[in-house]
Simulated scan of single mutants.
Amino acid sequence: MVAITGSSSYNPIITINTTTTINEKLTPATFPQWRAQFEALLIGYDLIDFVTSKHQCLAIDGTKSATSKAVNFYWIRQDKLILHAILVSISTTITSFLTSCKTSHEAWAALTCLYKGKYRTRTMQLKEDLTLSTRSSRSVIEFLQAMKIIAYELAIIDHPISDDDLILYILNGLGPEFRDIAAPIRAKETSLKFEEIHDLLVGHENYIRRMENQLASNLITTVNYSHWKGGISSNDRSFSNMGHRHNKQAIHPKATPSSIQMNLQQIVQPPHKEKIKNGLLTLLHRTR
């Protein structure tokens, strides 16, 4: 909460309650997030010039006029309130570094000097994370969210990456399943926004899953139909028995597409992989 506690002939005095406006105290690990919140707050209330030293304290003129006194008094009061807000929003382990600071600008500069040197190491780490990140077993949505979080943190510490670079990192980490859609995206002459690439990749993932389920459904229907007709040759029966030795529930009339995918993965293992594949091709050929 921010309250106007008083006023002078110059400007009202603004008090900042950081417990309700800053959601976490400053620690050595949270400076970028803390600074982003505090800057936004100061800009919103037109107080940022105090910490950047653009708005400096004006000395009382030689005549000690009421106006110059009011301006000077206003600046001191407002700056001390900003300094207080900074001090109460940081952890006690950091407060000791600011005990000698007399103005909000001194405190702000001290914190920036203390932590900005660590930006380079953090920036390199985050960029390495972007380079090495892969989708692996995650869904596309989870992968994209993780990449966006890294890009957001880079922006906070003044090292933003362009949409083109972010999309390149994403395409590199998707894996071979997305090769068909990655190629045309790379070839586009115009840049895509993150939101656009998000919709394209999620849609492509849904298409891949539908095709996998359809293939599994067609396969189980074909195999079960061949069993029911009794048209399996001796070679086909040896193939079927071999599958049952690996998994007794491999092919069942009540199996689902997802279960047939899992069972086929269990069955189709070396050294019988080629023989089973040939048996499947024979069954599929007979139903045509």
Score class of each variant (00 low, 15 high):
8 S>D: 05
11 N>S: 14
14 I>G: 04
15 T>H: 05
18 T>Q: 02
22 I>A: 06
24 E>N: 11
25 K>E: 07
28 P>W: 03
29 A>E: 14
33 Q>S: 08
40 A>N: 11
47 L>C: 10
49 D>C: 04
49 D>F: 03
49 D>S: 12
50 F>D: 02
55 H>L: 15
56 Q>F: 12
59 A>D: 10
59 A>G: 07
61 D>L: 07
63 T>F: 01
76 I>T: 06
77 R>E: 05
77 R>D: 06
81 L>E: 09
91 S>M: 06
92 T>I: 08
95 T>G: 08
99 T>D: 08
100 S>H: 14
100 S>Q: 09
100 S>E: 13
100 S>Y: 15
104 S>C: 09
110 A>D: 00
114 L>V: 01
126 L>Y: 00
130 L>I: 03
133 S>Y: 00
133 S>V: 05
134 T>V: 13
136 S>Y: 04
137 S>Q: 14
138 R>K: 14
141 I>C: 08
146 A>N: 03
149 I>E: 12
149 I>Q: 10
154 L>Y: 05
158 D>Y: 05
168 L>I: 10
169 Y>Q: 12
171 L>Q: 07
173 G>E: 06
176 P>I: 15
179 R>L: 12
180 D>M: 06
185 I>N: 03
193 K>R: 08
196 E>Y: 03
207 Y>F: 08
212 E>Q: 12
213 N>R: 10
216 A>V: 02
217 S>G: 03
221 T>C: 07
229 K>P: 01
235 N>S: 11
235 N>C: 03
236 D>V: 00
238 S>C: 04
238 S>A: 06
248 K>F: 05
253 P>C: 01
266 Q>G: 05
277 K>L: 13
279 G>L: 07
281 L>M: 11
282 T>G: 01
284 L>P: 02
